[in-house]
Simulated scan of single mutants.
Amino acid sequence: MLGDKIKILRKKKGLTQQELSAAIGVSRSTIGMIEKNLQGTGKETLMKLADFFGVTVDYLLSDNEQTENNEEIKKEIDYSLSIKEQEDIDDEAKKIINELSMSFSKNKDTLGEEDYFAIENAIRTTLEAIKIKIKRSLHQKNIDNLFQFNLMVVLGVSTLSMISYIQSVANEVINDYDDLDPIHIVKSLKRVEFNTQPLTKNINGFYKYISPNRQMIVVNENLSDENFCITLFHELSHYFLKHKNTLLLNSSLTMNLKEEYEADLCATYLYLEYIKKHRSCDDINYPKRVCELIKHFI
């Protein structure tokens, strides 16, 4: 499994978990959980591990246990972006942020310069990841498909244990809020600033972690009622799952990131419970993402 291979490769280099975590920019506890096969890792960290150990992502995710005298393992492929590609991404990120600036023009006090800078960096990072993904797909199409359909299974993590954790968090929310109305919930959270804005069509909303005592949730006001409801549950899920990323964009471009996938699962569970309380399930036209994830809770 992935964790076993990481542990073997780390020990071959004579590194401690702390030294490996510092080298690739993650916490020591994360390395420990990965090596015990109790936690997966996102694409970016997986690529960092592959680059650090001089192996391919294919090898880390395959059943091949051989680590020596294997030319396929040692083969390094350059997926870095050219200067032209980086410039194109910068231009596209600025174009999107300009559209966002226009969308926020009615509420100039809502977001400051630092907020826009964080959003632009998040967009740029997403676009870079997509470009690299396209390059990698020429060599490993199967990996992208597996990430698309079940991120956690690809990384050797027990989906059942993850679902169990998501349900336990969601059930605490259900017990604390009788009507389970997402609007009532978000307005009751003193540490969360909530508002709606006319965001671009590619962004449903976002969750911004500012400090332990201050978070921000923004939902695209142009969404349909059902999509608005599931999106607000999604952003609330980041809060209840204690995600601390500086900025998490709720977009079709980012839905396979670890935190977004977890929030999608939690939101789906909360949404289904909300529907049971307030509406007839037969009359509901479920949002697309709910239809994709509902199988985990039936």
Rank of each mutant, 00 (worst) to 15 (best):
V218H: 05
V173N: 05
T110L: 15
K208E: 14
S224Y: 05
Y59V: 02
C266Y: 04
F53T: 11
P287M: 15
I294L: 10
I6P: 01
T196N: 08
L2H: 05
K208H: 12
N204A: 13
F104P: 02
Q148N: 12
Y165L: 06
N150Y: 01
T231R: 07
L189P: 03
V290F: 12
N145K: 14
V219N: 08
I230N: 14
L236W: 09
F147S: 00
G25Q: 08
V26S: 02
T254D: 02
F233I: 13
S237T: 12
K135L: 14
T41R: 03
D51A: 10
H238L: 12
L155P: 00
N213E: 12
N70C: 13
F240L: 09
C229E: 11
M47I: 09
L61T: 05
I6R: 05
V173K: 08
F297L: 08
E85H: 01
K95I: 03
E260F: 04
A170S: 15
Y269I: 11
E44P: 00
E72M: 08
L60A: 10
S280R: 13
T110C: 09
Q167E: 13
K276A: 08
S158R: 02
S164H: 08
L20E: 05
E68Q: 13
K75N: 03
I96C: 01
K277P: 03
I31F: 02
L81W: 03
K94P: 01
T126R: 07
I130P: 00
V219H: 04
Q17I: 04
Y269C: 07
L272Q: 03
I134H: 11
S211R: 11
L223S: 11
L49R: 03
T41D: 01
G32Q: 06
Q86L: 15
K208R: 15
S188P: 02
K141L: 11
G3H: 05
A23Y: 06
N37D: 10
S27E: 05
I89L: 10
G205T: 05
T41S: 10
I96T: 04
I143H: 05
I183S: 09
I123G: 03
S164W: 01
N171D: 15
K12C: 12
T159L: 14
L9Q: 06
T231F: 03
K43H: 00
E260C: 05
F194D: 07
V192K: 04
E172Y: 01
T41Q: 05
Q66W: 00
E172H: 09
Y177C: 03
L60P: 06
L2P: 09
M1K: 14
I166Q: 07
S211W: 07
D63M: 06
D264S: 15
S82R: 07
D283Y: 02
N195Y: 07
E87M: 09
E128G: 09
E68G: 03
E85S: 06
S29N: 13
F117A: 15
S80N: 13
T41M: 14
I284C: 04
G14M: 11
S161K: 15
A23G: 04
C229L: 15
L81H: 01
I217P: 06
R289D: 12
Q167L: 04
F228S: 09
S29G: 08
H139P: 00
R214L: 14
F228A: 10
Q66V: 13
Y269E: 06
